[in-house]
């Protein structure tokens, strides 16, 4: 079981914008934590910091108690291998086949990267890729080019790619923000089913309050780079949530309502 510990994270961009200020929280093994926040609240910066894609100004991220910023490249790869990531815009390699995209999920485990290329992939990896695709219900589309699929299907391919990793922790950055409500719901359901059946830990960033309420066991709220609250779902009233979207500026409020709840 993997644990994630974020300690006093701060990030100031070179242009002086403060993206994160003193953010601390823990995600315990087996938990499903949802982070809520509107555009520009620092969500994505936080997401990228967790796997060291973003240089921090101060603070530290611990994975299983190990500070990740000081890890060597090789050790960082070993940590990343255990963490499956799901992105807002899927990040498939669009002119390759669905099957090939899923195979690439094994890059961290295969003997060499070449073993994840369809031409050279060993039979067990090819079988596993088909099983992962089947888990997301897309085995019949394995041969298609990734860009021939709908948005919801592409996100499911991305989830299958992530399953190839056998992740212990799933990080999802707005996995349904680029999808229509119906496809979004299907993706969330699928993701949560997988999390339950494999007893994984999940840290999911969302901006839709209603979706967060439905799936999260614990909710963190980020506002202007600061952690506004961190509570179990049952303790959260609509009033607390409305705090998150409270704005001094009426025009801004309107635009957030459009984008968010």
């Amino acid at each position: 079981m993997i644990s994630l510990d974020v300690a006093q994270l701060s990030k100031v961009y070179p242009d002086g914008t403060t993206a994160l200020k003193d953010v601390s929280f823990q995600v315990n093994p087996g938990e499903a934590v949802v982070l809520l926040g509107h555009n520009g609240s620092g969500k994505s910066t936080l997401f990228r910091s967790i796997t060291n894609f973003e240089q921090l100004t101060s603070g530290e991220v611990f994975i299983d108690g190990e500070p990740i910023q000081s890890l060597s490249k090789r050790k960082m790869r070993l940590v990343r291998k255990r963490i499956g990531m799901v992105f807002q815009d899927f990040n498939l390699i669009y002119n390759l086949s669905v099957f090939q995209n899923v195979l690439f999920g094994a890059m961290g485990q295969a003997k060499t990267s070449l073993h994840t290329f369809n031409w050279f992939a060993p039979k067990n990896l090819r079988m596993k890729a088909m099983e992962c695709l089947d888990r997301v219900g897309l085995a019949h589309l394995a041969n298609r080019r990734a860009d021939a699929l709908s948005g919801g299907q592409q996100q499911r391919v991305a989830i299958a790619r992530m399953l190839m990793q056998d992740p212990e922790l799933i990080l999802a950055d707005e996995p349904i923000a680029s999808l229509d409500p119906k496809a979004g719901r299907e993706v969330m359901d699928l993701l949560w089913e997988i999390v339950r059946e494999r007893a994984l830990t999940v840290f999911c960033i969302l901006h839709q309050m209603d979706v967060a309420k439905e799936y999260g066991e614990r909710i963190l709220a980020l506002k202007n780079g600061r952690l506004l609250f961190d509570r179990p779902m049952q303790e959260i009233s609509d009033e607390t949530l409305s705090l998150l979207y409270e704005q001094k500026d009426a025009a801004k409020l309107a635009s957030y309502e459009e984008a968010g709840a």
Binding site: F53, R77, R80, I93, G108
Partner: peptide, 18 residues
């Protein structure tokens, strides 16, 4: 997409080739 591969634990060679 490169970042997605990097997040699986891929090496620099894997990221470029993949």
């Amino acid at each position: 997409p490169s970042q997605a591969l990097e997040s699986t634990g891929a090496t620099q060679f894997g990221i470029i080739a993949g």
